[in-house]
Design a protein around this nucleic acid. Sequence first.
DNA 1: ACCTGAACACCGTTCAAGT
DNA 2: ACCTGAACACCGTTCAAGT
Lengths: 194, 194
Amino acid sequence: MEQKTVIIDTKEQILAIGRSVVQSQGYNALSFRDIAKAVGIKSASIHYHFPTKGDLGAALARRYTDDARALLDTLSIEPADIGASLDTYIAVFRAALANENRMCLCGILIAERDELPDIVRAEVDRFTDVNVAWLQTLLGRWTPGRSAEDLHQQAVAIFSAIEGAQLVARGRADLAVFDATIAAYRAAGLMPPR
Amino acid sequence: MEQKTVIIDTKEQILAIGRSVVQSQGYNALSFRDIAKAVGIKSASIHYHFPTKGDLGAALARRYTDDARALLDTLSIEPADIGASLDTYIAVFRAALANENRMCLCGILIAERDELPDIVRAEVDRFTDVNVAWLQTLLGRWTPGRSAEDLHQQAVAIFSAIEGAQLVARGRADLAVFDATIAAYRAAGLMPPR
DNA sequence: ACCTGAACACCGTTCAAGT
DNA sequence: ACCTGAACACCGTTCAAGT
């Protein structure tokens, strides 16, 4: 039998560990020394791959946004599929909580906004843009004939509501709170039904 | 004319500066050395008033929640006043953003949850409890006859949605985003109209 | 009762040096 | 190309010492 050996290079290891740390503890908790220990190199070596902590933070947000966009691209926005697509979308936020009560990487970074280097902030903004744009497209198919501005505002509202649901449910460390809140949003008509 | 001299004791100064720092930069950015510089004492002296950073964080969250509760107590929950009271409630979250793009102290602390000492976490939980309880009472008056659980879930949903609106608007550093999102929540019927 | 100076183990960052 | 050791100025914390 063939033995498969997965070799992950150092830079990818740093990104993987960094993502996990930020999603559970935030940007400030990201420690070059801790990452170095986990990877098995010295903290000074991290700077070879990411010159500053800001560079690492920006790389994490960029990768996170790119992954999100790749997922969104796989979701159908045909009217008949909108309920299911939105379900999948919400399931991503739910999965973060299910994974040791983690948060959306960019949601937690928004909270830390004032401490972030500009380069990180710019990448975090892009995450919001990508999400809102996708939701806006979805809403346009769901209820055609509305103005772009109208659709945009509802898209921002849905994104905000989901981020808030994740934040508060995380505070409770209770997935049921997230589920009940999403159900309440749907019952109110804030977002398309399943 | 009489000269009024306001003397604020050291402990109160520490709390005032600490609140401001946490609301704009979070718990991690709270630095004993920076506070000491602002107050005009040495960092070791802060430990006399608050033995650990956790004690200071918990005191900040406790004070913040107490202030919130005091405000909520002044708001009428009579059916005729519900729109206005909710307006005032939302205005508090808006005011934080208007104040140099600050956040709800407990909202930002929830995001940092995993880094918080237990003593801080407990106080943050209390803030959510106080807010949800008030909203639940309000909803009970607005639409009588619903089950407590039903009311509770909608109260959590409204609190989550408002926290999320504040978080995302902060990310955009744009009060108009907050206002439009709240308007969208109201239009959807998630919360009572003005 | 309140404050200080000095020490401790942490942090990101820099840089000359190694292979 | 990738890593290291040592130094730097930061951090919260402790504690003996001051008034």
